[in-house]
Amino acid sequence: MTLDLSPGARDAMQAWLSHMRALDGAAENTLTAYAGDLTAFLRFQAGHRGGPMGLAEIGRLGTADMRAWMAAERLRGTNARSVARRLSAVKSFVRWLCEREGFDPTAILSTRAPRFRKPLPRPLGRDAARDLIETVGMQHETPWIALRDVAVVTVLYGCGLRISEGLALMGADAPLPDVLRVRGKGDKERLVPVLPVARKAVDRYVAACPHDLTPQGPLFRGARGGALNARIVASVMARARMQLGLPSSATPHALRHSFATHLLEAGGDLRSIQELLGHASLSTTQSYTAVDTVHLMETYARAHPHGR
């Protein structure tokens, strides 16, 4: 089998991934995606140029090579958003590599990503969020499991957590403090205030749980005592939203969107919401202003006499 990458290119890629892990704090899932994207790119270029890709060959990639790769990706059915993500990984690697190898990266770094419209977050309304939490508590006939499900979704909504962050809470985190220390993407920590309703929901679950919630063990447990799986939470939410007639976008992650949107509607400022959500970039948080604008215009259209 023909080797697509030279040993030098493989070593460089591993060194770059180690750099991303150590200095930039990239999450393991992100690093895995980067490795796959970059490997696929270099293998394409090896076939396109007719030989293994080494460090020198990477330094000689030109505009035509980049266009050929992007065209091939689109022909394979890769959507614009995915192409943009893969191009970002390639640029990050090349930017790092050129500082060590001394080549001109202009042809690669100047390649423009295809345009795509970022989907707006799809939060639940306040009443829908409340109804969903109440309905989740009716999905299981075993009382402690029903209390667990309510506690999970209440924490996700009340603290704006990702599902992975909520399920990463440990027995030592209960009872929940006034301010919770959360470890999010890239192993970055943030402080999140805990609402009394979330604290009480967890207290009720802990009091009823038949399993030994050790300090170093997971706080939220499955029926047999192991760590609760995110798929179970998603399934519970799916049944509840079907009962309420809510759209398929009413997922566990939608509770995080709802947390941010409702804070913004109540007058919260973007910087504070950014910190609470753990967004690395303010531009990510700014998507909620678009949601709030859409909500405002819909309200205006319903209320204004010329909008009816």
Rank of each mutant, 00 (worst) to 15 (best):
L3E: 15
A12Y: 04
M13K: 02
M13H: 02
L17V: 06
S18R: 14
G25M: 08
A27V: 02
E28T: 11
Y34R: 13
A40E: 15
F44Y: 15
G50R: 00
G51L: 01
M53N: 00
L61G: 09
M66K: 02
R67D: 14
W69K: 05
M70S: 05
A71N: 12
R76Y: 01
R76M: 12
V83I: 15
R85V: 05
L87Y: 11
K91E: 06
E99L: 13
P105S: 09
A107R: 01
I108P: 03
I108A: 09
T111G: 06
P114F: 07
F116H: 14
K118N: 13
L120K: 08
L124T: 08
D127A: 15
D127E: 15
R130P: 00
I133L: 15
G137S: 09
Q139T: 10
W144C: 03
W144I: 05
L147E: 10
D149A: 08
R162G: 05
I163L: 15
M170H: 12
A172P: 02
V179C: 10
L180W: 09
G184E: 03
G186Y: 03
V194T: 09
V197R: 12
R199M: 03
A201H: 02
Y205M: 02
H211R: 10
T214E: 14
L219I: 02
F220A: 10
L228Q: 00
V236M: 02
M242N: 14
L246M: 11
P252V: 10
L255M: 14
H257S: 10
S258Y: 01
L264V: 10
S272Q: 11
E275T: 08
L277P: 03
A280C: 09
T284H: 04
T285V: 06
Y288P: 07
Y288I: 11
D292N: 13
